[in-house]
Simulated scan of single mutants.
Amino acid sequence: MRVADREKTAERLLKSSAEKFYDPEVDIDWSAPLVDGLFYIPEQRISLYGTPLYDSLTHEQRIELSKHELASIASVGLWFELLLMQMLVKVVYNTDPTTRHAQYALTEVADECRHSTMFARLVERIGCPAYGPVKHTHRLGKLLPVIGYGPAMYGSILVAEEILDRLQREAMNDETVQPIVRMVNRIHVLEEARHVRFAREELLRGMDDLRGFEKPYQKWLIGFVSMMITRAIINPEVYAAVGLDVREAHRQALANPRFQETIRWSGERIMSFLQEAGLVGKPGMRSWRRSFLIG
């Protein structure tokens, strides 16, 4: 019965993917001019918003900082999409390719390839570096497709996707944000809804299959990966773009109650789901608190 349910869900998602998908090369006008005076993320979501350092910036510097923070978010999102694709391919490697389940996983990989290209084009279009995560996080990321499996793997995917999803849903409806950014956000939000459905159902099935001794590892892994994700979103090097001391700006950002609240707000829906699923708890609680997803 569970196999039949999984196949039925995959069949629906395959049909939805065939009926509605976007090609960023065609559906986004990359030559459209950027609009003077508009932010690149909502101002209140800038990591330094509300700090003394932010108050010291001119309006133009604040817009410039928002541009570089967008570049960091997009390039970190791209980095995680690449890890996600590796994990999905590993699932297909061990699955009968004639099943709808395996075929939808491959369809999702195709979606993520387009999204990664879209994020790369966006960073290129706004003229910023592809910051990505800091070096030690980038190195650690290589381990995730190796050590990640089961509910923690799908849970990690959901944490990254749903945090980004909530930030993008807000930005795509904010007229103070650049039109090209809003379009990128809209495409990603519409297509990620299918991916979230797939990952949530796989996580719940995986929890039912876990043996008792595996649960502590799963709780530790998802807590640790979630902390790495939230700490990676804003690469500290973005602050140099507006002439700020990188270390001091990074310190103020991490201590900023508004930034911490942004992370908690963006993760509310997924944290509620993970808690109900039984994936939030010891030995992962130290990482969860450091992630800002739990107060």
Rank of each mutant, 00 (worst) to 15 (best):
I147P: 00
I147C: 01
G148P: 02
G148M: 12
Y149H: 11
G150C: 01
G150L: 03
G150H: 03
M153P: 02
Y154G: 05
Y154P: 01
Y154F: 15
G155M: 07
I157M: 15
L158C: 02
L158W: 00
L158M: 09
L158E: 02
L158T: 04
V159T: 05
V159S: 00
E161W: 01
E161H: 03
E161K: 04
E162F: 01
E162K: 09
E162A: 06
L164Y: 09
L164G: 13
D165H: 08
D165L: 07
R166F: 02
R166C: 04
L167M: 15
Q168I: 07
R169G: 10
R169T: 15
R169N: 15
R169L: 13
E170S: 08
A171G: 09
N173G: 15
T176S: 13
T176P: 04
T176F: 04
V177M: 06
V177S: 10
Q178W: 02
Q178M: 02
Q178R: 02
P179Y: 02
P179L: 03
P179Q: 06
I180N: 03
I180S: 02
V181S: 01
V181Q: 01
V181C: 00
V184C: 03
R186P: 04
R186C: 06
I187K: 00
I187A: 00
V189Q: 10
V189S: 08
L190V: 08
L190E: 14
E191T: 08
E191M: 08
E192K: 02
H195E: 06
H195P: 00
V196P: 00
V196S: 10
V196T: 14
F198Q: 06
F198S: 04
A199T: 10
A199C: 15
A199G: 05
R200T: 13
R200H: 10
E202S: 14
E202G: 09
L203M: 15
L203H: 08
L204V: 14
L204Y: 13
R205P: 08
R205Y: 15
G206V: 13
D208M: 14
D208L: 14
D209P: 03
D209K: 12
R211L: 12
G212Q: 03
G212I: 06
G212F: 05
F213C: 02
E214H: 09
E214A: 12
K215N: 06
K215R: 14
K215C: 08
Y217L: 15
Y217Q: 09
K219N: 10
K219F: 11
W220R: 06
W220P: 01
L221I: 09
V225G: 03
V225Y: 11
V225N: 05
S226H: 02
